[in-house]
Amino acid sequence: MLSASDLEAIWLTIRVATTVTIILLLIGTPIAWWLARTHSRLKGPISAIVALPLVLPPTVLGFYLLIAMGPNGFIGQLTQELGLGTLPFTFWGLIVASVFYSLPFVVQPIQNAIEAIGERPLEVAATLRANSWDRFFTIVLPLAKPGFITAAILGFTHTVGEFGVVLMIGGNIPGQTRVISVQIYDHVEALEYDQAHKLAAIMIIFSFLVLLSLYSFQRKNTLWGAK
């Protein structure tokens, strides 16, 4: 059926996408919160930077990340100072690149959900003695739950589907950076169409099922907080 290297690529892809999704939820939420509520002049520039990966070719993003994380780049110098070596062509290099690449897919749904809640429920909670953290966990999280779920699903699937950034930053190291999309590319290069077919079909079915569940979930949640 699937070769050992195919299974290895699948397992690696799952690990990368899961790690990236968790990191994105952790850093994307404060960014989304800030963007949803700020009146700062920086809102426009920050929104644009977050959205850049939507329009840039992955190779452009990958190229600059490669330079930044390389031995002379500012990220690279920082990681070397910390004794971590340089990140390109490692698992964590791939994670960092994927976080940048998938950021808008996580920030935007959360930002939209927080904006849809509006000020009022938070004001109400404040008059009921809830402090900021309390308000976040008891009001924002439950009311924006559909947005968080959408964000997690989009972040995960988008990371699974990336290719250009991986090639630029991660190369093709088995068990380290050789994810499914790269493995398929390798199979095709080697004219192993049978193997490529299997993995490609798995990707199509997986992506379809995920999107199907996402859209049926969103249809059920047209009303805020509906159970």
Binding site: R120, P121, E123, V124, A125, A126, T127, L128, R129, A130, N131, D134, I139, P142, L143, L223, W224, G225
Partner: peptide, 20 residues
């Protein structure tokens, strides 16, 4: 004092129950 530290009750113009 931030709102959550003021010993007040507030009823808003539109019924503002938490929908969840």
């Amino acid at each position: 004092l931030p709102t959550h530290k003021r010993p007040l009750g507030y009823v808003f113009q539109e019924p503002s129950l938490f929908p969840h």
